[in-house]
């Protein structure tokens, strides 16, 4: 399977993640913040591929979130790329299959992504209130859902990744 096929899969999976977090989670659990599933996909890519294509895919996933929100084009793309590059660098030092690692990685990534997002929009938009409280809630919820979704992403994307590896030989 070519890189294009993998990229297409990731893009479509990103759209599905946005759809799930924007519709199902918020409709069924309106009182809680939705987990950032698109960000979990970025973490998964950073842990599993750690290459240039992954950086582009992280950028495109962020762009999808930006486009869906329709506020500004670019801040989530920049924030996802930052998370990707940092996680790609530390990926080899972590046992990423561990439940605790993926949970902690998701919590830290949520904080990091949000920080970069606000840094990018700072000069263009006013910032919301209670950032710390909302961020804590979102980080915990994303952390809770991290492990099962990592397994889910792995099932969906592993086939493509393995074929890519074989093709590169």
């Amino acid at each position: 399977m070519s890189s294009w096929h993998t990229a297409t899969r990731v893009i479509l999976l990103g759209l599905a993640a946005i759809f799930v977090q924007a519709t199902l989670f918020k409709a069924l659990l309106p009182a809680f913040p939705a987990p950032n599933l698109a960000l979990l996909l970025v973490i998964y890519l950073a842990f599993k591929s750690s290459d240039v294509l992954g950086a582009f895919l992280a950028f495109l996933l962020g762009l999808e979130v930006d486009l869906y929100s329709g506020v500004l084009l670019g801040p989530w793309a920049g924030s996802f790329v930052t998370v990707y590059s940092i996680y790609a660098l530390v990926a080899r030092r972590l046992f990423v299959e561990s439940y605790i690692t993926s949970t902690l990685a998701a919590v830290v990534a949520t904080c990091l992504a949000t920080l970069v997002y606000f840094l990018l929009i700072w000069s263009f938009l006013p910032l919301p209130e209670n950032i710390l409280w909302k961020l804590t809630q979102e980080a915990i919820v994303t952390g809770v859902f991290a492990a099962p979704f990592m397994v889910f992403f792995d099932r969906l994307l592993r086939a493509g990744r393995e074929e890519r590896k074989t093709a590169s030989w």
Binding site: S49, G74, G78, Y84, S85, A88
Partner: peptide, 26 residues
């Protein structure tokens, strides 16, 4: 997964370029 040093440099370089593009787009 082990990331070779030159690949690491490429990932950082490309990520930085994409971050700059994000800032420009924003």
């Amino acid at each position: 997964m082990a990331v070779p040093a030159d690949n690491r440099v490429r990932v950082i370089g490309v990520s930085f370029a994409l971050l700059c593009i994000s800032l420009f787009l924003t």
